[in-house]
Design a protein around this nucleic acid. Structure first.
Lengths: 206, 206
DNA sequence: TGCACTTTTAACAATTTTGTTAAACAATTA
DNA sequence: TAATTGTTTAACAAAATTGTTAAAAGTGCA
């Protein structure tokens, strides 16, 4: 009988595996490194999780959910367009600040195997296309009502997402080039919630 | 004596290696796959290039240059701020449209080993920090002269770069979610040169 | 305690991936 | 043509990585 709460080792392994997989990706991750990180024998990895691929899928599913769920929650809400924009920015920056490797990991692994997007999307029961389409319709409507400047909904959507996510994907480059330490970067991202919002709002207001 | 033009095999191998490395990354790339892609025996890879790492470094240097050089060329020009912005957008979208895996590859490999940014930057003789600092000063000056709305230079810089690069990094996700085929995506990116420029200009104009 | 059961490990085996070597083949030229 | 050089391959060797097994160690309880 499978208990509800995971054994300490199982959780230990999972945490270690998350670290290694999200940092190195599937191809770069080593079972040895995961075991070392968890402070246990490599064979135990196979005792709790059949093999590398099984482990990866469990972790990828978690991270996939973490990456997409909140975003789609916002899209589905019935707030105004500007409120939605504020929520998306706020949510994305908050989540990615907490999980530094999340975006890069999910994006890279989907780029490696694009069908994972369909596969895990279905498994988690959401339909990305619908949500995006609705959001784009909403933009069109706002344009027609003269609430915002004329703009291609796809471009606006890409702009919002790019502005939120890219700095985390390219974090190491940005930190080096702008000579920031970890704290400076965090602070800048916190400030970015406001700055990015104003930037986008100014860009689209009539 | 080393000739100027590379032998057909050497070039064949290099082209194959570029494909495989940029698609799969260092860890995911297989010498076997490169050989197959080039249509030759695996041992020949080691005849022309000592080992996997040597091959990778040659290719990474090329791609690193491709990714950063033009961008910094624009930063160094003495065009106006808005002209610089137009040039950056134009250049980035043009380059990344031609080399679909370029951004993802360079970003990922630097994330894997951040010191490569310093290392290859020095090797190619450019100082990213200087250029970025000058660009940020230019932004500050434009703000003080009332030419653009008050904005943190770092944020504006990140916004411009994010808007240009992210769509290519997350291309497979975007294509799937927005139900685009390759051609539609290309067209959208071509149109984006204008759309992104207008978006950013509107965002910063006083 | 001793029995049944789970967890953990060391040692081993299999597989995958990289790198090497010696010989075949091709081209060039003395 | 035969000697020389450079190119290519098949076969082999080495290393790295993953996966398995049998036994040891730990746990709870009749």
């Amino acid at each position: 009988m499978q208990g509800a709460e995971p054994k300490p080792s199982e959780e230990l392994i999972l945490n270690a595996a998350v670290k290694v997989f999200t940092r190195k990706g599937y191809a770069g991750a080593r079972m040895e490194e995961i075991a070392k990180e968890a402070g246990i024998n490599r064979a135990l990895l196979h005792y709790y999780f059949r093999d590398k691929e099984t482990m990866f899928n469990i972790i990828f599913e978690t991270k996939f959910k973490e990456f997409f769920t909140g975003m789609f929650g916002v899209f589905q809400s019935n707030a105004s367009l500007t409120e939605k924009i504020r929520s998306i920015i706020d949510h994305e920056i908050t989540v990615l600040s907490k999980h530094p490797d999340l975006a890069r990991f999910v994006i890279m692994e989907i780029a490696q195997q694009p069908d994972r997007l369909i596969q895990f999307g279905q498994k988690l029961g959401f339909n990305p296309r619908m949500m995006l389409q609705n959001f784009q319709k909403e933009i069109q409507q706002n344009v027609q009502e003269g609430k915002i400047r004329p703009i291609d909904g796809r471009q606006l959507l890409m702009n919002i997402i790019s502005i939120c996510i890219y700095p985390f994907v390219a974090k190491s480059i940005i930190k080096t080039m702008m000579q920031m330490d970890e704290n400076t970067f965090s602070d800048l991202m916190e400030k970015r919630k406001k700055d990015a919002y104003e930037f986008i709002i100014n860009a689209i207001k009539p």
